[in-house]
């Protein structure tokens, strides 16, 4: 299988703090990969480096075989990278439909208005937001916000989708629905890398898990294997647990 996303030896330093220390990982085509780790492990920093909101101090990021380390976030989106934020950031003065339309119109340059509008209708249906399409994005419930975040990333027609704790704050039933939605997205041909704190979600969704601690990859593999590893348990529960 082809590697659609590759992170090679990426480091990122904030003042004195080494947030990422030569992190390497990859995402296979059609795979759902979870990146987990305790708070402050560097997960969101990693996503920001991949999506281009932060420049790494060293290392390389490749998307569909192309180096993208020096590209702007918008150029990465044009090449097929999608991103949903942890802290939901709706464009509050636009309606839900307009929020998606931004992604559909500008996510791939040269998309006609008609094609973008048709695609937005599909995404609205897929994410269950049809009934709220005209609502101002600033007036959504938390659940709807989360769906919008996912839908908007999807609207850019990504090949690789980065999800930053999109399940946080959801009730178990809602999280289950979201898990099913992410599976549908994968089945439509999108490879998914997601960050998550909720272990039931990780177990249910991830084909493979990468564990970060203090900016380093400390374990990698299927959920069952990773969860048994001593270093992982220590990272989560502290030494001596």
């Amino acid at each position: 299988m082809a590697r659609v996303l590759e992170v090679q030896g990426v480091s990122k330093r904030f003042l004195g703090l080494l947030a990422l220390k030569e992190v390497s990982l990859h995402l296979e085509e059609g795979e759902i990969l979870a990146v987990i780790g305790p708070n402050g492990a560097g997960k969101s920093t990693l996503l920001n480096v991949i999506s281009g909101l932060l420049r790494p101090d060293g290392g390389e990021v490749r998307l569909l075989g192309r180096p993208i380390t020096r590209l702007s976030p918008e150029a990465r989106t044009h090449l097929g990278l999608g991103r949903a934020f942890q802290i939901v950031q709706p464009l509050p003065e636009l309606s839900v439909r307009e929020n998606l339309l931004v992604g559909a119109l500008f996510g791939k340059p040269g998309t006609s208005k008609k094609a973008a509008e048709a695609w937005v209708e599909e995404v609205l249906a897929l994410t269950g937001l049809e009934a709220r399409a005209e609502a101002p994005a600033g007036e959504l419930t938390l659940l709807e916000d989360k769906r919008l975040e996912l839908a908007r990333a999807l609207a850019t027609r990504p090949r690789v989708l980065l999800l930053d704790e999109v399940m946080a704050g959801l009730r178990p039933k809602e999280a289950e629905e979201a898990v099913a939605l992410v599976r549908r997205i994968r089945d439509s041909g999108v490879s998914v890398l997601f960050i998550e704190h909720l272990m039931p979600v990780v177990r249910a969704l991830a084909d493979r898990v990468v564990v970060l601690d203090h900016g380093e990859v400390i374990a990698e593999g299927p959920y069952e294997k990773v969860a048994r590893e001593e270093r992982v348990r220590e990272a989560y529960l502290g030494r001596g647990a």
Partner: peptide, 12 residues
């Protein structure tokens, strides 16, 4: 409304 969101959505 948000430059970071706009960029991630592909807006130049």
């Amino acid at each position: 409304q948000s430059e970071a969101v706009a960029r991630v959505l592909g807006v130049r």
